[in-house]
Write a protein that binds this DNA or RNA. Structure first.
Length: 416
RNA sequence: GGAGAGGUGGCCGAGUGGUUGAAGGCGCACGCUUGGAAAGCGUGUAAACGGGAAACCGUUUCGAGGGUUCGAAUCCCUCUCUCUCCGCCA
């Protein structure tokens, strides 16, 4: 969410920068809503002031007058609430602005490849996709999963299930011990306002799973990413500056409807309704956002370096970034069967955009100011596993376990 | 699931219809005091929104929302969270 005073003052700059994000801001509409709202607010306050003075006296001769003013106030304030709501409806769906060094473009075609790492392996035999690999002993079982839960679910078995668990523990250990992230085991169901805080609501309601609790007015949602809970750990609070930066890591299942992608990636584990992800979140002073983004990116890269999987870093264009982001680097791993790179991580700085939605502040010299928030996958487990299985496959159908992972795999050298 | 008790400022805690944004304390900041510190004394100490170049002014906020009243932290209703006891359960 943007600072409305700043928006008001620099309306045309915002219009231009929002259009870089594929958002068309109707400036006239905004101006009208805002002016109208402020007019109502000031009228209301004037009446309230009058009423305040009358209420302080016990003079009965004023009671009638006071009552009339109360009625007027109540009418005005209903109007004002409606106008505020209209204004909010517009304000709440404005995406964050891109930083100046973000390439301008309307979609992923304008993304910029920053650097590629590792060597893409040549296979001397006909390579298998992860779905084909999973057919062996039915260790990656889509059929049973769909019987139980429908499409876009999977059941992992035996050493493949172990591999998933191993990757999670491997990543958590690195982030907690080497990079000083605090491990969190969070709830997977959150309230509506928490989803609003990080920007999943109201705009992306269709991609969220809503949970019904009986006898409750509160809407609850399954988290689509641990970013939601980890970032909201500081919601509605004022953090002491000397506690910053805060760094959190969690491994959680993530739940997504994938509503807009019916025909896309229907085969395999690439796009599931439920998948594990190890998520990194940093809470910093806003001035440190870019420095922290670089640090976070290097934490995520470390995982792939240790697993010896080829990958590339991509700087997303203004049109391809997520709603709350001001700058995003994607990490994409090599998927041999598709002969292309696929996203396993998205590291974003959100500046104060989310903090403003959450009411998350820190004490600074100039009083309480909004924090900076960052989030990044470190990494998405399902896709990482796909990449590992495919890149490390051998002619005999076995999968070589990278050295760094062996101790997490009961010291196995290979999955036979 | 049943019964009860609660939610007040950064924290603790008074306050049961009328200048209460809110006593008192702690904490914090500044000043005095001191060789220096502690103690002591004094002063100050919320946020959001609106107006203003600023000083500053106005409105709102005592878990959230609604109601009663000329007037609500205080009375009523709904929701929410915390705690205690009982029951049930991984």
């Amino acid at each position: 969410m943007h600072n409305i005073k700043d928006l008001r003052k620099n309306l045309n700059i915002y219009k231009k920068k929002l259009s870089d994000r594929n958002f068309h801001l109707k400036t006239e509409l905004f101006k009208n809503l805002d002016d109208h709202n402020r007019k109502l607010v000031s009228e209301k306050e004037k009446l309230e002031q009058e009423k305040g003075i009358l209420s302080k006296s016990k003079d009965q001769s004023n009671f009638d007058k006071s009552k009339k003013i109360s009625e007027q106030i109540s009418k005005l304030s209903k109007e004002q609430i409606i106008s505020q709501k209209k204004l909010n409806d517009l304000l709440f769906i404005l995406p964050n602005l891109a930083q100046d060094d973000v390439p301008i473009g309307k979609d992923e075609k304008s993304n910029k490849i920053i650097k590629q790492y590792g060597k893409i392996k040549e296979f001397s035999f006909k390579l298998k996709s992860h779905t084909e690999i999973g057919l062996k002993d039915n260790n990656i079982d889509f059929e049973t999963a769909s019987k139980l839960s429908g499409s876009r679910f999977v059941i992992l078995k035996n050493k493949i299930a172990l591999l998933e668990r191993a990757l999670i523990n491997f990543m958590l250990d690195i982030h907690t011990t080497k990079f000083e992230y605090t491990e969190i085991s969070p709830p997977l169901i959150v309230n509506e306002d928490v989803m609003f805080g990080t920007g999943q609501l109201p705009k992306f309601k269709d991609d969220q799973f809503e949970i019904n609790f009986e006898n409750s007015d509160q809407r609850k949602y399954l988290i689509p990413t641990a970013e939601v809970v980890l970032t909201n750990l500081v919601r509605k609070s004022v953090i002491n500056k000397n506690l910053l930066p805060l760094r959190f890591v969690a491994s959680t299942p993530c739940f997504r409807k994938e509503a807009g992608s019916y025909g896309k990636d229907t085969k395999g584990m690439i796009r599931q309704h439920q998948f594990y992800k190890v998520e990194l979140v940093s809470i910093v002073e806003p001035k440190d956002c870019n420095k922290e983004l670089d640090r976070m990116l290097s934490c995520a890269k470390e995982i792939l370096n240790k697993l010896e999987i080829p990958y590339q870093i991509v700087l997303l264009s203004s049109g391809d970034m997520g709603f709350s982001s001001e700058k995003t680097y994607d990490i994409e791993v090599w998927i041999p069967s598709e002969n292309k790179y696929r996203e396993v991580s998205s590291c974003s700085s959100c500046g104060s955009f989310q903090a403003r939605r959450m009411g998350a502040k820190y004490k600074s010299q100039n009083g309480n100011e909004f924090l900076g928030t960052l989030n990044g996958s470190g990494l998405a487990v399902g896709r990482l596993m796909i990449s590992l299985l495919e890149n490390n496959q051998n002619k005999d159908g076995s999968i070589t376990i990278p050295n760094a992972l062996k101790k997490y795999m009961n010291n196995l050298d290979k999955i036979e």
